[in-house]
Design a protein around this nucleic acid. Structure first.
Length: 520
RNA sequence: GGCCCUAUCGUCUAGUGGUUUAGGACGCUAGGUUCUCAACCUAGUAACACGGGUUCAAAUCCCGUUAGGGCCA
């Protein structure tokens, strides 16, 4: 049935939007909704619009708006109309659209579709509590609906505080959700809901309905948590004789405990994931598959292929748990796909941040995000006071490319390249049941072989050629290779000894072996 | 409490009445691979919430129950 709906979709006619309130950072739920809207718009050559719902002045903050825009861009979800770029149906910030709403609020009142309600909040709250306690829906009883216009005028003249309520008709209200089919509500159970705080301040449902109409939104794709708002919005549309857009309510993204993803589930801000070194393409791929999949067995999809394959019929109805392990896997995959140059550029930021390397010109020139970073060729290693090239850093990054799950791990993994002296316990050098004497012997053997290699021949291949036969002789290669590698890296786990040695160079390798020996 | 939504391996999911001993991926376990880790390869683990119908045939359609979730201005 959902399929039939799409026979009506003609390229260019689709206009979708996301309408976040700038009351928090861009989080996964919103990002996923944005992605699905974006994919849908692109699929049908339509428009994806960004609207900021900042009518709640107290909770809204421009820095959240900035965060939302910035991180959507980082993800590659771009809008064709929005607060930053404008558009035909602007402004795209609700706080700048107040006169538009005022016009409609007035219309509601003039047409007798709404009325002033003077009930106090305490009164309302008490009644709500009571109704809930006796198993009744907590509705407004329509007390002020009875007020004559003279009474209303009088109360207003007296300066009584009031809000504006919609006169909800008593009937059933059904709509077709593109995903879930017919959803029916009893308008009886909706009650006379508030549409504005006062003549100049619209409330959520009214503002949405007005904006979606004024911005010619064709399809409203949003989270499942908005289903209960839909009948109210439809009621408002009908009162105003607006055409009804199509609705599609996406399943929610859930935390480990199956509840709606929220702050208490840990990091959910996209910027946190960005900082931790997740790649935008991994994130997009991951989010697309939360609640949707193309049907085949392919799991790796880039934005263009997602746009190509996206289809509403393949959206899931049940909520999906956010599983970081899977994100990690995808991220590792995309990291492995990067070119060494690109990956180095991305890792550099983390190395600089950790103070492992310092660009040879002022570090203030580096913006905090790696997009558009200007790359310098030379770097200082503060600890050894050496100067190294970008190429050198690239060699290091490259041998860790397949070990990286997140970019931020690069510093911890490779710090031993940027240190003068390694701190580790001598036990680290022990392979299996080796005695102290044997460990030292192994180190001496390696040292001897290495001493014979000319500096210009000091590379991975030659090292392997010279050392492997010796290791082979010992039966278990680990007797030679483990102490060697441990001495170079000071770590239990690392890249292979030969590749590390090549990068470190003969002089440093010998020094590290000497240091290891001195522990016995 | 009321209303609404949902229900296949631990997780994301394929499956749209017979081709299904329910497929894939992540995870986990074991083995392989030049010490370790990773990557890679191979194998294994594990699910149709339950109960009624409809039908020659149901994970797939209907009803109910249960469970989970969302919303309540």
């Amino acid at each position: 049935m959902a399929i039939e709906e799409f026979k009506f979709i003609r390229p260019g006619e689709v206009r979708v939007r996301i309408a976040p309130a700038p009351t928090g950072f861009l989080h996964i739920g919103l990002a996923r909704t944005a992605l699905f809207n974006y994919l849908f718009a692109k699929k049908y050559q339509g428009s994806f619009i960004l609207r900021i719902e900042d009518t709640d002045v107290e909770r809204s903050d421009p820095r959240f708006e900035k965060d939302i825009l910035e991180n959507l861009k980082w993800l590659g979800i771009e809008w064709s109309e929005g607060p930053d770029i404008g558009g035909k149906f602007g402004p795209y910030r609700q706080s700048e659209r107040l006169e538009i709403y005022a016009k409609y609020i007035e219309k509601f009142l003039n047409d007798n579709l709404a009325y002033h309600c003077f009930c106090s909040e305490e009164e309302l709250e008490a009644r709500r509590q009571y109704l809930m306690s006796v198993g009744q829906p907590p509705l407004y009883n329509g007390k002020c609906r009875q007020l004559s216009s003279e009474q209303t005028q009088k109360l207003l003249a007296l300066g009584e505080k009031s809000i504006i309520r919609f006169k909800a008709p008593v009937k059933k209200i059904a709509f077709k959700d593109l995903l879930r089919g017919e959803i029916e509500f009893d308008a009886d159970l909706i009650g006379d809901f508030a549409i504005a705080k006062d003549l100049a301040t619209p409330l959520y449902n009214l503002a949405v309905v007005v904006d979606d109409f004024e911005m010619k939104i064709s399809h409203i794709i949003r989270g499942e948590d908005h289903i209960p708002n839909t009948p109210k919005q439809i009621l408002l549309q009908r009162a105003l004789h607006f055409p009804q857009p199509e609705y599609l309510h996406l399943p929610l993204i859930l935390g480990q405990d199956r509840s709606k993803l929220s702050k208490r589930h840990g990091a959910i801000a996209i910027s946190d994931y960005k900082k931790a070194g997740y790649l935008a393409e991994a994130f997009i791929n991951f989010m697309a598959f939360l609640g949707w999949n193309p049907g085949g067995e392919r799991e790796i999809y880039s934005m263009p292929s997602l746009i190509k394959e996206f289809s509403i019929e393949r959206i899931q109805k049940g909520g999906a748990i956010f599983n970081v392990k899977r994100l990690d896997f995808l991220n590792g995959f995309y990291i492995r796909q990067k070119s060494p140059e690109k990956l180095t550029e991305m890792c550099l930021l983390y190395l600089i941040e950790e103070g492992l390397v310092v660009p040879t010109f002022k570090s203030e020139q580096y913006p905090p995000a790696y997009g558009g970073m200007e790359i310098t060729q030379m770097y200082k290693i503060p600890e050894t006071r050496e100067e190294v090239s970008l190429d050198y850093i690239q060699k290091i990054v490259t041998i860790y490319q397949e070990r990286l799950k997140k970019l931020s791990e690069i510093s911890e993994l490779t710090d031993f390249f940027f240190k003068d002296k390694l701190e580790y316990d001598k036990e680290l050098l022990r392979w299996k049941e080796m005695g102290d004497r044997e460990i030292k012997d192994s180190l001496i053997r390696v040292e001897k072989i290495i001493s014979k290699i000319k500096p210009e021949d000091f590379n991975k291949e030659n090292l392997e050629k010279e050392i492997m036969p010796e290791a082979e002789k010992m039966g278990d290669r680990g007797y030679l290779l483990w102490p060697f590698r441990a001495a170079l890296s000071g770590k239990k786990a690392s890249a292979g000894p030969f590749e590390i040695a090549e990068i470190l160079g003969k002089k440093k390798v010998l020094r590290r072996i000497k240091e290891a020996k001195s522990k016995f």
